[in-house]
Computed example of a mutant assay.
Amino acid sequence: MTFPSLFLAFFLLTSSFSPLAAGSSAAYPIIPGTVDTSVSAAPSDDLIPVRREVYDDGKLFDITHRYTSDMPVWESDDGLGQFLWLPKSMKNGSLANNSEMKLPTHTGTHVDAPGHVFDHYFDAGFDVDTLDLEVLNGPALLVDVPRDTNLTAEAMKSLNIPQGVRRVLFRTLNTDRKLMFKKQFDTSYVGFTKDGAQWLVDNTDIKFVGKLLGLNNTSIGP
C-alpha cells in the first residue's frame, strides 16, 4: 500500500523542522493549549515572491496596481489604511493562514459596474459579473495624451485613433505625477470631459457600451 509510505515520508519531512526557541510574538501569540508551529528558516530558504507585469514574451501585461495601505482612495487624505487582516495564522496555531479583506470597490485598478452611476441598472442587479470578459481582455492601443489638457474633444481628435480599435489605454499627466502612488487623493487629476467622451463615441469604434477605454487614475471623469 502506498498510503503508509506517503504518510511516513510526510512525517519524516515535517519532523525534520525544529521550532523556534521563542516562536511566539506580540504579532503572532500562541493560542493557549496549542503547539507552536513556527519553524526556523535555513539560510538556503531565501524565499522572494516573484511579481511580474509582463507574461509570455509580451503577449500579456498586468497593468493593475498592487494594493497598499498608502494608496489613494476617493476623496480621502488618509489613503486606504488597513485593508487586510489575518484572523487565522499558522504562527499562532491555526492549520492554515486565512486572510480577510475589506476595502471600497473603487480602490486601485478597477472597472465600474453598470449600476455605479445608473440607479435603474443598480436596482436590476447589473454588477461587475454582468460585464463581457471578452471586452475586458485582449489587444489594446496605448496612446500618450498631450500633458497640458484634460481628455477633451480636441485632444481626442489629435490622437488619430485608427478605426477598428476596440480598446484604448490613455497615458496622461497622471502617470508623470505618480498620482496612484500618493496617499492623499488629488482632485487635480486628468480625466475625460463630456465632449471628449462624446467625440470618441461619434468618431471611433470605441463605444462606452460594449467597448473599453482605460485611464491611469482612480476615476475617469474630471
Rank of each mutant, 00 (worst) to 15 (best):
L212Q: 04
S16F: 04
F185P: 12
D70Y: 02
S24P: 10
G93C: 02
S24L: 04
L200F: 03
D78S: 15
L12C: 06
G221E: 08
D70V: 04
S188A: 10
P104H: 04
S69L: 06
T187V: 07
G93K: 00
D46H: 06
T68S: 15
L12G: 05
P32N: 06
S99H: 11
W85S: 09
A27D: 13
G23E: 08
L212F: 04
N97D: 15
F185R: 10
E53N: 10
V145D: 01
N150V: 01
E75Y: 02
K182A: 15
I63C: 12
F118C: 14
F3T: 09
A197Y: 08
V168C: 07
K178L: 14
P104A: 09
Q163R: 13
V165N: 11
D57G: 02
A140P: 10
I31T: 14
V145Y: 00
F83D: 12
G221D: 09
A21Y: 03
F11I: 04
N174A: 13
T204M: 05
S158Y: 06
V165L: 11
Y28E: 12
M101R: 13
S89P: 04
V39M: 11
K178M: 14
T193G: 11
A155H: 07
L200D: 03
V73H: 06
G108K: 00
D45Q: 11
A140G: 08
A42H: 06
R51Y: 04
P43H: 00
T193Q: 09
P43K: 00
L200I: 02
Q82P: 14
T109A: 15
D36P: 03
I48F: 05
S219E: 15
A140H: 03
T64I: 02
H116R: 15
R166F: 10
D77S: 13
M1R: 09
T152C: 07
S24V: 02
S18I: 03
A26I: 01
H106G: 15
G221P: 05
F126E: 06
L151P: 04
L159H: 08
V165M: 09
Q82L: 12
I31P: 10
V35W: 01
A96M: 09
G58H: 01
L60E: 01
T37W: 01
A21I: 06
A41E: 12
P43C: 05
A27V: 07
T64N: 12
D132F: 02
R167P: 14
G81S: 08
I206P: 10
L213Y: 07
H120A: 14
F10C: 12
S99R: 06
P104G: 11
D36Y: 00
P139Q: 05
T149L: 08
L179C: 08
N203A: 04
S15R: 07
A155W: 09
D127Q: 09
K88I: 02
G164Y: 07
N217R: 09
R147Q: 11
P146Y: 01
